[in-house]
Amino acid sequence: MSPYEPLIGAVVFLVFSGLVLLFSSKKIRTKFPPVFRKLSAAQKLRRAIGLAVEDGSRIHVSLGNSSMIDPANASALAGLSTLSRIGQLASTSDLPPMCTSGSGDLQILSQDVLRGSASDTHTLSQFDPVLARMTGVTPFSYALGAIESSQDSGTSAYVLMGDFGPEAGLLLDGAENQGAYKLAGSNSLIAQSIFFAVADDTLIGEEMFAMPAYLGSQAVHQASLRVQDILRFLIVLILLGAVVSSLAGWL
């Protein structure tokens, strides 16, 4: 590892944080309103939430089996933000959302998120702590446990957001057997390829991290999305520059 790598990392982190703070400010948001492309999956998810509210059915959020001390936890964090938002939007439903995960720390966090949503929406009386549960400690046991958990709970929509492996295929198949709507996103490429074949809507790549912003969460979610775009373009420019340089013999 180059000695400059940590330094570059620190600079990227600071720049990213600074830009997020900058774009979060109301002044910037007002002057330069963000324009994002249409994400049909977000639209459909909101519709599914609405249907669940109206039908009195449940939304099942699966956060995968990564641990918070794994690098893959970012996808689970995005899943938690989405869960929080779904919890708020579906607060008027007879059946509050359910969350399954494959690790203990995610179970505790998801329980906390669901409780927080219930508290925010004054539906604590409907809150059942068991609605957030770890259904298995291995990927396949987790997947089967998640299917089993939602089978008798009137689930009409599945949202898979987190770190998954091939076992996600079984999870989605279980959802399909119930005739539920399936939206899935993961940091894992294997999971994404499976999602594309099985799920109704797939969040490819970083779309998963954009989902909280598309569901209308805090300003900082939108701001981070804008900064992501800026950095992506920078990376593209750097890559193109490197290619041109190497072709020209400068590197």
Binding site: K38, L39, I49, Q222
Partner: peptide
């Protein structure tokens, strides 16, 4: 059937 919750949000709201 559109629902109340759906009506509260729009994916493109931050676009405009």
């Amino acid at each position: 059937r559109e629902t109340i919750a759906v009506q509260h949000t729009d994916p493109d709201f931050f676009a405009e």
